[in-house]
């Protein structure tokens, strides 16, 4: 896999990459509003290796989607401050100009959006939209772009792709639209695919199909996937590594099986506890009390402390991301003392 990357990089003529395909270091994002600057992402660091599937989990408003948008530089330029490094294939995306970033988007990093119902332009046919992406990045004829579009639709297992290319998004079902989005994201064969809750808007049976499809395509093309979700079940099935985000910070990072077996951060344990279990039929569904603090009223110490059952006075000081072992990091000073319940016991 790394040979393929090296070859791809040689072709592109950029410096050879480190081990990771994408490595983000100390990404901070602040928004400006009437009351001044508010930090919404705090020192987010993560790495995605070539061909790997990494999950990011957390409640709504934890900064998951924001991280994805920051990677692609899709945040508004005005009133937004972004610092930190975003190394991708040996380049720091944070330093690229808008024009250079355009050549990365869609070509080297694909993105699938949460709502397939509104992510496709209603006035163009499916084929128009896929060929548009192809022709943005490759100097090919209309006809060849169209052939690629048909092939991409076939690759996402759409029946009779020749007919679907001339259809408008409104005549497709949600599942079909998400397949089209996947086809659009993969048609330029990117090295990395960012999937921002790709199945949230779909019903359960279609969810499973779409996930199978994504993982299968990722495996076959060697595309790494950064998978953003709040569905821990999907992470368990599909990812090799996962990160838990809370209130704009990474609070836990490690291999999926180890984290699920024995989470080290109380927030991860809380998320795992909130997954409905078929056996506890009559009991109340456990949940984490409270809600994610808004960026304006961030606790000065551990950001999870107000909702944490294991909180102690020293927790009210800021927490650093600690290395639990070679593979795992956790943002909790008590990680060693606590034995938290996992999903699999």
């Amino acid at each position: 896999m790394s040979d393929a990357v090296a070859m791809a990089v040689e072709r592109a003529g950029v410096a050879p990459p480190g081990k990771a395909l994408l490595s983000i270091r100390d990404l901070c994002v602040s928004f400006r509003d009437d009351s001044g600057w508010t930090q919404v992402l705090n020192n987010v660091s993560l790495a995605v290796n070539p061909g790997e599937t990494v999950g990011i989990v957390g409640e709504s408003g934890c900064g998951k989607s924001l991280t994805a948008l920051s990677i692609l530089g899709l945040l508004q330029k005005r009133d937004v401050l972004r610092t930190g490094e975003i190394n991708f294939e040996g380049r720091d995306l944070a330093k690229l100009s808008e024009a250079e970033m355009r050549r990365v988007r869609g070509r080297h990093i694909g993105m699938i959006f949460q709502e397939p119902m509104s992510a496709l332009d209603p006035v163009f046919t499916v084929g128009d939209q896929i060929t548009e992406t192809v022709r943005t990045h490759f100097n090919v004829s209309r006809r060849e772009a169209n052939e690629r579009a048909v092939a991409a639709l076939a690759a996402v297992r759409i029946a009779s792709p020749q007919n679907v290319v001339s259809m408008y998004p409104m005549s497709l079902s949600g599942g079909m639209r998400q397949r089209v989005m996947i086809a659009m994201a993969l048609v330029c064969e990117p090295r990395l695919l960012i999937a921002d809750e790709p199945t949230t808007a779909l019903d359960v049976t279609i969810q499973a199909q779409i996930m199978d499809l994504l993982l299968d395509l990722g495996q076959r093309t060697g595309t790494a996937i950064l998978f953003i979700t709040h569905n821990l079940g999907l992470v368990a099935e599909s990812c090799t590594r996962m990160l838990t985000m809370y209130a704009g910070q990474v609070v836990e990072d490690g291999p999926v099986d180890k984290i699920l077996m024995q989470p080290k951060h109380p927030y991860t344990a809380g998320l795992l506890g909130s997954v409905p279990q078929p056996r506890q039929r009559k009991s109340l569904l456990p949940s984490i009390p409270g809600r994610v603090p808004s960026p304006h009223e961030m606790p000065s110490g551990c950001r999870f402390a107000p909702r944490c059952t294991y909180v102690q006075p020293p927790c009210l000081a800021p927490q650093a991301l600690l290395s639990a072992d070679a593979e795992r990091q956790v943002r909790c000073r008590r990680y060693d003392e606590l034995t938290l319940p996992g999903a699999i016991s």
Partner: peptide, 26 residues
């Protein structure tokens, strides 16, 4: 502010292209 405009940008479309091809027809 439609998602497909963000999506087009996410697929590498430039500002002029977005205005001409996605915003104007809609």
């Amino acid at each position: 502010s439609a998602l497909y405009v963000d999506a087009a940008r996410g697929f590498g479309a430039g500002t002029g292209h977005i205005i001409w091809r996605h915003i104007l027809p809609n």
